[in-house]
Amino acid sequence: MSITPEDFSCPLPITDHDTVQLAHGSGGRLTAELVEKFFLPRFANPTLARLEDQAVLECPGGRLAFTTDTFVVDPLFFPGGSIGDLAVNGTVNDVAMGGAKPLWLSAAFVIEEGLPLATLHAVLLAMEQAAKDAGVTIVTGDTKVVGKGACDKLFITTTGLGVVPEGVNLSAANLRPGDAVLLSGTIGDHGMAILTSREGLSFASRIESDTAALHELVAAMLAVCPEMRALRDPTRGGVATTLNEFAKSSGVGIMLREEAIPVRPAVRAAGEVLGIDPLYVANEGKLIAVVPAEKTEAVLAAMRAHPLGAHGVCLGEVTAANAGLVAMRTALGTHRIIDMPVGEQLPRIC
């Protein structure tokens, strides 16, 4: 199911305005009202409620994973989610891909003047829910309002902090020949959801984004395989890009099996129509893990036991040959290179 502003029962706070005004960013009364009526109720927690210039946190000790990401997406709401879900889940996932348990997020908003307050409210509700689901708290934040045309509706930057468990050491440079390459589910759902909901592309159906927070899945996998080599969520550039980064960082080859790659029929069909290979399309709720071969079955079982990894598969393996390259053995038994993508994936007619 997708979320639209109307779906929310939580009522829109009453204000004198329907849309965000430049004055909402002036630091004056309107700013205070925006923060108090819109932001605080959503992310309620004692740290944020202090309303200081910084969050003061009790450090749990050990190694920290620390990441930041900016979210810009058009449209703001798409089948299966919104920029609010992405802003929480995306950063949670970046922390989780270090093997870490995400704890705190910060969120900074750049709002274009004229954005309907109802839209902002719906985005914040989505963030609230996503943060709740992921078990993270948004402990500090900022908002700025910019003039019309200075940004596109709403940009959100989130920063995340998490704790890396003892003994976990994940890196794209850790791959060794013989390792297995695992994937947690179908590919291309998010990117195709966005692409097919853009105007100008004539689509009438809805493909749902897979946006989800993956840290619990990661924890379950690490529990059976603490010696996991590498972990990454294949967002922009898709699975092909992540695997190429792995192959280059580790100086190894990766050989995929075409039949193993899970793609939803609707995503594959949209890919055929637009001339876009799902291997290059963004995911927001999938991960790729590289594990020692002997741990393949154990990790797959742990993945499949979790709803977000139910369709987990072994995509292929790491090879000493073809160092730096990702290749695929096709269903016909031939081979081809899976290159790094060049620029944005554009729909084509030829």
Binding site: L201, S202, F203, S205, V267, A269, A270, E272, G275, I349
Partner: peptide, 30 residues
Amino acid sequence: CLAVPGKVVAIFEENGLRMGHIDYAGTVNR
């Protein structure tokens, strides 16, 4: 000339043109 086979699931008129919804394994476009 990328062209893809799909099934006509609806036929309608739009701006005086005969249009259809085409289903390709669950993805529908016009």
